[in-house]
Amino acid sequence: MHGARTEQVMLTAGTVWAALAVQIGMLLAFRYAKKRVYHVVTMIAVILFDIGMPVYLYLNKDWYRRLIEEGEIASFLIWIHLMMLVLMYALYVLQIKTALRLLRSDNSVRVDHRTQGRVVLWVRGLVILSGALLVE
């Protein structure tokens, strides 16, 4: 029983490390935005990672026990984390919209796209931080 618990904690700590590694990749893609192919491919990979992470965690964690049986559904940190995730996904939608316009040579959204990118970096960092605080 103790070994399984340690494995579960390691699994979750591993997801935090993976998210941090992806954050570094995202920072590099932001920094080297003029290398368009690198930037676009990296950002698509980051978005796909962030879409897949909740699915992965859902399939590998006992959410019912933690949220319902242990009563963490009422935790302020859980709700902050959830709201940050919703904000991050909404920002991704805006980023994709402006990115598509940029790829069609509409440079009027370049400043918006860069500003949104900065906000995404901060929000994603906060998502990682709140997720790390929720590690069992």
Rank of each mutant, 00 (worst) to 15 (best):
L94A: 07
Y92R: 04
S130F: 06
H2M: 06
R36G: 02
Q116C: 07
Q95M: 12
A13F: 03
I68V: 15
M43E: 05
S75T: 06
I128K: 01
Q116A: 06
G117P: 15
V9H: 03
M43C: 02
K97E: 07
L27Q: 12
R114F: 11
R118Q: 13
I44L: 09
M53W: 01
L77R: 12
F76K: 13
R110I: 12
I78A: 10
M84G: 02
S105W: 14
F76S: 14
V127K: 01
I47E: 00
W63Q: 07
V93Y: 09
G71Y: 08
Q95D: 04
Y38E: 06
Y38V: 14
K34R: 13
I73K: 14
L28D: 06
L133K: 03
Y38K: 05
Y89A: 09
H81E: 05
V46Y: 05
V135A: 03
V55S: 00
K97V: 09
L129Q: 05
Y58W: 14
V86Y: 12
V119K: 15
T15R: 06
G52R: 00
L82F: 14
Q95A: 08
L126V: 08
Y92F: 11
K34A: 14
R124H: 09
E136C: 02
V109K: 15
D62F: 11
Y64K: 15
M26S: 15
V123S: 10
M83E: 06
L126P: 00
E70V: 09
L67F: 15
F76C: 10
R118E: 10
V135G: 03
L85Y: 07
L85E: 01
R104G: 10
Y89H: 07
